[in-house]
Amino acid sequence: MELTFLIDNNALVGTRLLAEAGLSMLIETDGKRVLFDTGYSDAFLANARCLGADMDHLDWIALSHGHSDHTWGLGMLLRYYDMTPRPDRTRAGLIAHPKALGAKRHRGIPEFGSLVAEDKLASYFDLKLTAEPVWLTDSLVALGEIERVTDFEKPAPLGERLEDGAFVPDDIPDDTALAYVSDTGLVVIAGCAHAGICNTVEQAKRVTGVDNVRAVLGGFHLQKAQPERLDPTADYLAALDLEGLWCCHCTDLAAKISLAAKCPVREVGSGMKLAF
């Protein structure tokens, strides 16, 4: 598997690529190409052009959840498709939780979720909206709705979501992730891990039947996290004996420092390429 960070909150020194408070990755494995999230703007497209990453022949677009910093780039991708018609362009599948594309609001922002509605996306992509795990390739699986089993990663509502015609506190049931099964163990790929990064790893183990975890990467949603959350998270991840922990996006500096005391934390930024 080859994975490229198209967008992260940081850009690597010397790359001259864009960064924004969002996340997008391109994953290539088993002859398939999967775009995981699309960031907040067209920055992931600009970086893809600089990196020579083909956005015209995708097999899947996978959304980790419905928040703006992971889905608003979808509208820019559709605009790119409209402005540059190509007869050989692949019609990709788009996989997300059934609640990922609904209306969300947060701190007075009228729309905190996807700007492109389900019916519009269906004009461009083959939609698969499901809470169940789905294998996207022979070795890469979308984990479905994350079961919340740890006692230290308690659900924390973030804004509100529209449910049956009314807004309710949003505990983000649409949060999901990917897992890659290599010959030597799992690579767990999170978007924001609102369900908890440890819960996400446990879900990956259940879905794949593989207990050995090589690497964990992506956003961990550890911002202003208190010791009662950070300490057991670091202990859990340290016990996995990872090759690397590539925490980024919604993982703040204090969390990275805390995790680095026990885990092999690696640098992340727009343009980084990893191979497993």
Rank of each mutant, 00 (worst) to 15 (best):
M1W: 04
M1K: 05
I7R: 08
N9C: 05
N10A: 15
A11N: 07
V13C: 04
V13I: 09
A19W: 01
V34E: 08
D37T: 14
L51D: 12
D59W: 10
W60S: 07
I61Y: 03
I61V: 14
S64N: 14
H65R: 07
S68V: 03
H70Q: 11
M76V: 01
M83R: 13
R89S: 06
R89K: 08
P98T: 05
K99P: 00
A100I: 00
L101E: 05
G102T: 11
A103F: 14
E118R: 15
L121P: 12
T130Y: 04
P133W: 05
P133D: 09
V134T: 03
W135K: 04
T137H: 14
E145Q: 15
E145A: 15
T150I: 01
D151V: 12
F152Q: 02
P155K: 12
G159H: 11
R161D: 03
R161K: 13
E163V: 03
D164F: 09
D171C: 11
D171S: 15
I172A: 15
I172C: 13
P173E: 13
D175G: 03
T176Y: 12
Y180V: 08
V181E: 10
T184F: 08
T184D: 15
G191T: 04
C192E: 15
C192K: 07
Q203T: 07
Q203R: 14
A204E: 02
R206L: 07
R206M: 07
V207C: 04
V210L: 12
V216Y: 08
V216H: 05
E228D: 15
R229N: 06
D235S: 14
Y236W: 13
L237N: 11
A239Q: 13
W246K: 04
C250D: 15
A254P: 00
A254C: 00
S258A: 15
A261L: 13
K262P: 00
V268M: 15
L274A: 09
